[in-house]
């Protein structure tokens, strides 16, 4: 494999039904590239939660997955409302998602905690009114 392989996705914020399609595609790409099932699951679950978050909170955004020999980096960027209290948002069970999202199976306050759970490193940069960028790394 060359030094870095990039996969870029635009996440449609209008369509909850299609949310997660990019993560399914990443899962297939990583399988084709020969990564272990554990690594593939960690990357795809973290990205899937991020995709769902961008659709629920930020009217979509972009996702970049950079694959290196020793690590996989995921960058999720949106121009949504931003996160005013990141520490609170990281608590399991805390959610600002509207009730209709809970009827769709999300909004339990597990999205960001799951992203942290499945990655080796996670950094959130967010500015209220400007947007949020989340950087995650899964070591191979």
């Amino acid at each position: 494999m060359s030094e870095r392989v990039n996969f870029h996705f635009e996440i449609d914020g209008e369509n909850f039904t299609s949310a997660g399609e990019a993560s399914v595609r990443i899962k297939k790409h990583l399988r084709d590239m020969g990564f272990s099932p554990d690594t593939i699951r960690r990357v795809s679950v973290a990205m899937y939660e991020g995709e769902i978050n961008m659709v629920i909170h930020a009217n979509g955004g972009s996702a970049d997955v950079d694959v290196y020999v020793d690590r996989i980096e995921i960058t999720l960027a949106d121009k949504g409302p931003g996160i005013s209290n990141i520490e609170l948002a990281m608590q399991e069970g805390y959610s600002t998602a509207p009730d209709n999202i809970r009827s769709l199976g999300f909004g339990a306050g597990m999205g960001l905690p799951n992203m942290k759970r499945y990655t080796d490193n996670m950094k959130i940069e967010s500015e209220v009114g400007k947007g949020t960028t989340i950087y995650m790394t899964v070591n191979v």
Partner: peptide
């Protein structure tokens, strides 16, 4: 086992193998 019937159920199952 779930009572939720949308495409995210399938994607979640796929994510978790």
């Amino acid at each position: 086992l779930t009572g939720l019937c949308n495409p995210q159920v399938v994607r979640t199952a796929v994510m978790m193998d």
